[in-house]
């Protein structure tokens, strides 16, 4: 609005060389204009993956710096350099890769079984009221028992082979999946179910086309929690009576006071966890692209 008023006043300014004496903005004075920068030019063009890796890399740099300056001694924590060398050795003699293979297999089997049990129970109690009455109370009760506390019992039941380790992971994985899938099913918009009914969907059609897709975001959240718990359960399970796997490698290293090997194992755990997270992210991107939610700037 001020722009349309502008012409007369500056003209008199130039000729008269007289500033308006009033402290407030004079009717014809040009207010200060601020350029609105397009968001695309303001944002740094750093690829997403690079931005995501910067944080951990900075942390690593700090660690190396502390080790090099002697603030962090090697019997407390080995330097990244040493750890990289030890990791190379462990990979070369095959002990790390075989341990990773064993651990991965345990997690995979446990995760698979836990997913089956967790989603299966969630479907039963989510879809049927009778199922809810039978299953939900029991699961909610068992959920409060710390699953790590069951390790001694599992060893008595399943011996000291693979079975108790897989069982512990299965147990840990089942609960978060159950809770989230169940909540997901019960959180499906009743209006959509009604619309599905009015479209003539059968009961199974409703489950397949409305309820299950609607519960998928919940299931994905559950899967994320489950993966985190799966690694946790793996660490616990492998530190007891294991003769192979990353946990076994760690227990051995502890006995020989090898902090470098321990850190290598921890890094492997972290790396595997990151990998699992990446898998879930990819799954979410593929399966949940329909979701009208905020994805961040």
């Amino acid at each position: 609005m001020s722009i349309s008023h502008a012409p007369p006043q500056p003209a008199s300014d130039i000729s008269g060389k007289e500033r308006p004496s009033a402290p407030g903005p004079a009717p014809g004075e040009q207010p200060e204009l601020v350029a609105l920068v397009p968001s695309s030019s303001r944002r740094a063009r750093v690829p997403r993956w690079l931005r995501r890796t910067t944080g951990p890399l900075l942390l690593l740099g700090l660690w190396q710096l502390l080790s090099a300056t002697g603030v962090l001694t090697s019997d407390v924590l080995a330097s990244p350099e040493t750890i990289a060398r030890v990791a190379g050795d462990l990979v070369e003699d095959g002990s790390l890769t075989s341990a990773m293979g064993v651990s991965l297999q345990r997690v995979a089997i446990g995760l698979l079984l836990g997913t089956l049990v967790g989603t299966g129970l969630a479907l039963v109690s989510g879809l049927f009221r009778i199922g809810e009455d039978l299953v939900d109370a029991s699961v909610q009760m068992l959920r409060t028992v710390p699953f790590v506390g069951l390790i001694p019992l599992f060893i008595i039941w399943f011996g000291i082979g693979e079975a108790p380790k897989v069982a512990i992971i299965t147990l840990g994985v089942s609960f978060p999946l159950y809770l989230n899938v169940y909540a997901g099913i019960r959180g499906v918009d009743s209006q959509l179910i009604e619309a599905g009914e009015s479209l003539g969907l059968s009961r199974w059609g409703l489950v397949r086309h409305v309820i299950l897709p609607g519960a998928l975001p919940g299931a994905m959240t559950g899967l994320r929690y489950s993966l985190g718990i799966a690694w946790l359960a793996l660490v616990f399970a492998e530190q007891i009576n294991a003769d192979a796997g990353i946990g076994f490698l760690m227990v051995q290293a502890r006995d020989f006071l090898r902090t470098d090997v321990i850190v290598v194992c921890l890094i492997v755990y972290a790396f595997l966890g990151l990998l699992a997270d990446f898998v879930v992210r990819t799954l979410e991107r593929l399966l949940l692209q329909w979701r009208p939610t905020f994805t961040g700037r």
Binding site: Q191, L192, E194, A195, G196, S198, L199, G200, L201, G205, H209, V210, P213, G214, L216, W290, R291, P292
Partner: peptide, 21 residues
């Protein structure tokens, strides 16, 4: 029926919504 809210299944593309049921 057409409701006040469109009640499309958000997880199905438009044409799949049309064919649903």
């Amino acid at each position: 029926v057409a409701f006040q809210a469109p009640r499309l299944m958000p997880w199905k593309r438009v044409w799949r919504n049309v064919l649903l049921g």
